[in-house]
Amino acid sequence: MSSELAMFIGIGGFGISSLSILVLLTISFPKLRQIEDLIAGPERSIMTIRAVWGEGPYGRLNRSCHIVLFLLLRHIPLRHFQRTAANIGNPDAKMPVSLHLWAIVPPTGMFIGFITACIANQFLNPA
Rank of each mutant, 00 (worst) to 15 (best):
P106F: 01
E55H: 14
I67R: 13
C118L: 15
F70S: 04
P42E: 13
L71T: 06
A120H: 11
P96L: 00
A40M: 10
R33Y: 13
N121M: 11
L25S: 09
G113K: 07
M1S: 15
Q122P: 00
L78R: 14
A86Y: 09
R83Y: 03
S64P: 04
N87C: 09
S28L: 12
G54N: 14
S45Y: 02
I21P: 03
L61S: 01
H80N: 08
W53V: 00
T84M: 15
V68D: 03
A93R: 02
A85W: 01
I104M: 15
N87P: 01
I16T: 08
M7V: 07
I119G: 05
A51F: 00
I76M: 07
N90C: 00
V97Q: 13
A40E: 11
E4R: 15
F114P: 02
R83L: 05
T84V: 13
L25G: 14
P77N: 11
R50E: 09
L73P: 08
G113W: 06
F29S: 02
P126N: 12
F123R: 11
A103R: 06
I119R: 06
H100A: 10
E43V: 00
N62I: 10
S3Q: 13
I119T: 10
P96F: 00
S17D: 04
K31L: 03
I119L: 10
P107E: 01
G12V: 02
I21L: 11
P91F: 13
Q82F: 06
L101R: 01
T116L: 15
N121W: 11
A85L: 04
K94T: 10
E4Q: 10
M7R: 12
L99T: 06
I9C: 11
S98I: 09
I39Y: 02
S20N: 01
R33C: 12
F70H: 07
R60C: 03
R50V: 05
M7N: 07
V52G: 05
S98H: 10
N62C: 06
L99M: 08
A120W: 08
M110P: 00
L32M: 15
I16A: 11
L69Y: 03
I9N: 12
Q34W: 02
H66R: 13
F8C: 05
P30T: 10
A86R: 12
M95F: 08
L5M: 06
G10N: 14
R50P: 02
L19M: 04
G89Y: 06
R50F: 03
Y58W: 14
S3W: 05
M47K: 08
L19T: 00
F81G: 10
I21H: 02
Q34H: 05
Y58L: 14
I88G: 06
N62V: 09
C118F: 07
H80D: 11
L101N: 03
H80T: 13
Q34I: 07
G113P: 12
L99D: 03
T84Y: 07
M1E: 11
W102A: 04
E55Q: 13
T84E: 14
N125S: 13
A103C: 06
T84I: 12
L78C: 12
G89P: 08
I67E: 11
F114D: 08
S3L: 09
I115P: 00
S64F: 01
I67A: 13
I21N: 05
C65E: 07
L61G: 03
N125V: 08
A120C: 14
H100E: 06
L101K: 01
S45H: 04
P42D: 14
V97R: 15
P42L: 04
I104F: 14
G56Q: 12
T116H: 09
G10S: 15
